[in-house]
Amino acid sequence: MNNSLKAARVALNAFVLVAAVLPLYLLAKQSVTPELETFAWPPHWIPHHLTLSHFISVFAVNELRSAVLRSLAVAAISAMIATVLGAMLAHAMARSSIAQRIGFSTVSGIRLLPMIAVAIPLGIILATVGIYDSPTGIGLAIVHGAIAIPTAALTLYAAFVAIPLEIEEAAWIDGASPLRIFLTIDLPMARASIATALILCFILSWDEFGFALLVQQTNRTLPPLLYYYTVFGNVGPASALALLMMIPAICVVVALGPSLRGALTAGSSR
């Protein structure tokens, strides 16, 4: 009984491992397999020839460097917008029952809304303002900032709820204004969750595809660029690019691993 249970657990772990690792392996394999071998039948589990030409070709394309910079800028700016606005919303939600009701319905409203329904009007608005398909990607950054607010707000809500009201009241009695309390008491106390919110929003924007495709028609960010590679049959370079796109996420998880995990689960048990 105990043994069969153990075996089942090993099998389950193995399955999860394979399901998680196999796609990554195939991606990595594809990125170093020469063009001709890519479509070999039956497929080769281990490539017979290795090449770095896909990576070279990706870097050779001028568009890539600007796309990387644009993606980084859009993700960073949108994460900042979402975290700043999300923090204000989350604090209000944590401290007032009316704000909490309005906040939760707004947040779930944004999440339930079919994104495609707002995509066209958004495009028109951005065009009117003159930041449609902007080389800096500022229009997309604003859109990403807006759709990331729920993520930031929900992450920070848990953190602000965990701060005892007593501490804010003490600061008020000590003579601090509400803005001062927010900036010098609440934000520093929630700093782990703020880092989490920034990272989650950054990643959200980093691999957002739909709006990026629509809003940045010619001045592309990485996900649409990857899409065009695939569409035009460049499987090798597409795999190489996809692999490169995972670098920020891996960096984040490795660098902030333990604290990120802590902050992600913080508040969940309260």
């Binding site: 007593e166 501490i167 009241e169 003490a170 600061a171 009695i173 000590d174 008491i185 106390m189």
Partner: peptide, 17 residues
Amino acid sequence: RRESIAMVFQNFALYPH
């Protein structure tokens, strides 16, 4: 009023950071 009054709270409400 705020200038002439200080308060010690039940759980002291020290700023942990």
